[in-house]
Design a protein around this nucleic acid. Structure first.
Length: 188
DNA sequence: TAAGAGATACTCT
DNA sequence: GAGTATCTCTTAA
């Protein structure tokens, strides 16, 4: 079951928490790569200084102001792509959830090849790593994740325990615990 | 095993 | 021109 648009049309933080344990699918031609989402972060709009959408509309962040359930891919640190899903309630002007980590399910061999390292526990446990393993780049920006296409998110497992932490790699609003994660042993 | 720094290019001011 | 929602390697203990 692919998650519908309504799933994303809620408070960004709620969506971030509920995306934990869901299944991310990436299709490349006849290849299928999937993984269980293990870590997410919520980024809101004007009320969140750490968010790209904290300032006015720009070329890069405009997707965060647009329709929910779309992908928001951007480039950072000169090397890495980040994968986000637009998610916000009707009251918010903007918002998105950063997918920070997955645990590989299908197509593990391909992901190992894309990453050039063998340890399955380390090939997709970071936002820059998973986009590399799944071959995600700016071409995957602004796609509809609620439809069966080259990327989508569907029902996965019910996580046992979700951990809350401050968000990673930011300097503003570090008091907000909007990072959610599970350990692989907490899947069931 | 932990800590530190370099790589590298795009976006906004 | 400065800063960045990161990763990996190197070094040292």
């Amino acid at each position: 079951m692919i998650l519908k648009k309504e799933f994303y049309e809620r408070e960004t933080i709620t969506v971030a928490k509920q995306l934990i344990g869901k299944k991310l699918t990436r299709k490349i031609k006849n290849l299928k790569l999937t993984g269980i989402i293990t870590e997410t972060e919520a980024y809101r709009g004007r009320d969140d200084p750490a968010s790209h959408a904290a300032t006015n509309l720009t070329n890069r962040n405009q997707i965060m102001f647009g329709p929910v359930g779309m992908s928001y891919v951007y480039f950072t640190y000169g090397m890495y792509f980040m994968l986000n899903v637009v998610a916000k309630s009707k009251k918010q002007n903007a918002g998105a959830v950063l997918i920070r980590g997955i645990y590989p399910q299908d197509g593990i061999k391909i992901m190992i090849k894309n990453r050039g390292m063998k340890d399955v526990n380390k090939i997709t446990n970071g936002p820059g790593k998973l986009t590399m393993a799944m071959n995600i780049s700016m071409k995957e920006n602004n796609l509809n994740l609620t439809k069966k296409s080259s990327i989508y998110i569907s029902e996965g497992i019910i996580p046992k325990k979700i951990k809350k932490s401050p968000r990673i790699g930011i300097t503003k609003a570090i008091d907000k615990k909007w990072n959610f994660s599970i350990m692989s042993k907490d899947y069931f």
